[in-house]
């Protein structure tokens, strides 16, 4: 054993631990899903001012929501699984928020990432299925491809083909505050937490 051994060992240990520390954001996350939740919580990001149209064919932009707290989710209306669950969750959250917060400005926004299939009729059908009424709960699709790409990038949504003609995507609910900043990424299954976090952000 030589002094060179300890130098080499120390170097490898230091570099290895540093790399793993960096790669896990300080030993806190191992998945990209966890990483994006942590990143948003640490530094809220401004959402791009994208133009969309809703289930009534009404055009609007994300900037129209300034002064409102918005719960956003990403869907495609043909989705047989997770989006329906999201729809149900949204419905429940909406009911609770209406009961608790009265006239406080909290809106829901479901954005389709499948403009090829989700035209006005599809958005309307989806909205009817869950009793969504604009503008309190809009089912919307971006007006153009660039807007969609900008939204997916900012929110960190990854959409991949499911091999059966549909899509698989990271499902989450995105909380955008009154200043138009994405402040939290939440688990759609935990509707209680979702409502609490939303009320807290809305009360700020």
């Amino acid at each position: 054993m030589t002094r060179g051994f300890f130098a080499l060992l120390g170097l490898v240990l230091a570099a290895g631990i540093a790399a793993l520390y960096w790669g896990t954001d300080g030993f806190r996350v191992v998945t990209s899903e966890g990483a994006r939740e942590l990143a948003v919580e640490r530094s809220p990001r401004a959402v791009p001012d994208v133009a969309l149209f809703d289930q009534n064919g009404h055009a609007f932009t994300l900037a129209d929501y300034r002064g409102h707290t918005v719960l956003v989710d990403f869907i495609y209306t043909r989705c047989p699984t997770i989006c329906s669950v999201n729809g149900d969750d949204f419905q429940r959250v909406l009911t609770r928020l209406q009961k608790n917060t009265g006239d406080r400005k909290i809106d829901l926004l479901s954005i389709s990432f499948d403009p090829a299939n989700d035209g006005l009729p599809a958005l309307q059908l989806y909205g009817d299925r869950f009793g969504a009424e604009a503008p309190r709960w809009r089912i919307a699709v971006p007006a153009d491809r660039h807007g969609l790409a900008a939204l997916l990038k900012t929110f960190g949504v990854v959409v991949i083909p499911d091999g059966w003609g549909g899509f698989v995507h990271n499902s989450a609910v995105y909380l955008v505050d009154a200043q138009g900043r994405l402040v939290r990424i939440l688990d759609p299954d935990a509707s209680e937490q979702l409502a609490v976090a939303t009320e807290r952000v809305a009360a700020q």
Binding site: V30, T31, S32, E33, V158, I160, D162, G163, V168, N170
Partner: peptide
């Protein structure tokens, strides 16, 4: 749940 955003379950 999925561990990778780019791979299916």
């Amino acid at each position: 749940t999925r561990l990778c955003a780019y791979y299916r379950l």
